[in-house]
């Protein structure tokens, strides 16, 4: 059975018509299943574990990056595939990177059921699929205990990328794949102080483990959750089965 987990923000009246369209499409395509709605009192891990015990065939997240992150954290140790129906064009970078269309159009991807295994990033004890990001100001980075990276320019951002978010243009042709068991450490800074010609500069490292320290700024994972440093980032031992679209970026 397909289990559809709706995020709590979808209880707002403005999403009624979107959900109706999604549900109609699901019925038309014969993808019917049970709907679980998240709420303040409901524990996500409990919902996911119960549905797995009851024999769920697929768990489909209906929501945004935050919803996907929450459910992925609950599902990382199980073999059941995760599907995504992104609602709204904002905060849905995970679905975009996986080549999944928005709202009712995502049902085509669910129906095609193209399942792949992807790496899962781990920031302390929290999983992420897309990236972990922090501002460069006051950030120090230690890699594999062999060397440290000091960022001389305090502007810009450091990202540890598992799945390349849309809109990020890398300075060189490099294949960022969530299937290569490697994370990309990407540091963006402004190289010149000339206000008329602020050239952006980049650093790029391929890593397996990194320790991020910052006394004042948090690490943001999957555009949704903040974690207070020090944060050790690596890859989870388990991979996640996920339904992807044809137009994914890897």
């Amino acid at each position: 059975m397909n289990i559809y987990i709706y995020d709590s923000f979808l209880n707002q009246k403005k999403y009624e018509s979107v959900l109706a369209k999604i549900e109609t499409r699901i019925t038309d395509m014969g993808l019917n299943g049970k709907i679980d709605r998240l709420g303040i009192t409901k524990n996500i891990n409990e919902i996911v574990n119960q549905e797995i015990k009851r024999g769920a065939k697929t768990i489909v997240v209906v929501g945004n990056d935050q919803t996907v992150n929450k459910i992925a954290n609950a599902m990382v140790n199980c073999q059941i595939p995760l599907g995504i129906i992104p609602v709204g064009k904002e905060n849905n970078d995970i679905a975009k990177a996986l080549g999944i269309d928005f709202e009712e159009f995502a049902c085509e991807t669910l129906s095609a059921r193209r399942i792949i295994q992807i790496d899962v990033g781990l920031a302390n004890n929290t999983c992420f699929l897309l990236r972990a990001a922090i501002v460069n100001q006051e950030t120090t980075i230690e890699i594999d205990q062999n060397y440290s990276v000091e960022i001389l320019d305090k502007q810009g951002e450091t990202q540890i990328i598992n799945l390349l978010p849309p809109g990020i243009i890398l300075p060189i042709k490099i294949k960022v794949s969530p299937q290569d068991e490697i994370l990309e450490l990407f540091i963006k800074t402004k190289a010149t102080k000339n206000i008329f010609n602020k050239k952006i500069s980049y650093s790029l490292f391929q890593i397996k483990k990194v320790l991020i320290k910052n006394k004042h700024f948090p690490v943001i994972i999957d555009n949704s959750k903040s974690i207070t440093p020090p944060v050790e980032i690596s890859l989870h031992k388990q991979k996640l089965n996920i339904i992807v679209g044809h137009n994914r970026n890897f």
Binding site: N146, S148, V149, E150, L152, D153, S201, Y202, S203
Partner: peptide, 16 residues
């Protein structure tokens, strides 16, 4: 190229 040490970055230690 798989590693770029950019102009605003300082590496301390053994980079292999």
């Amino acid at each position: 190229v798989e590693t770029i040490i950019g102009p605003s970055v300082k590496i301390k230690g053994d980079f292999h």
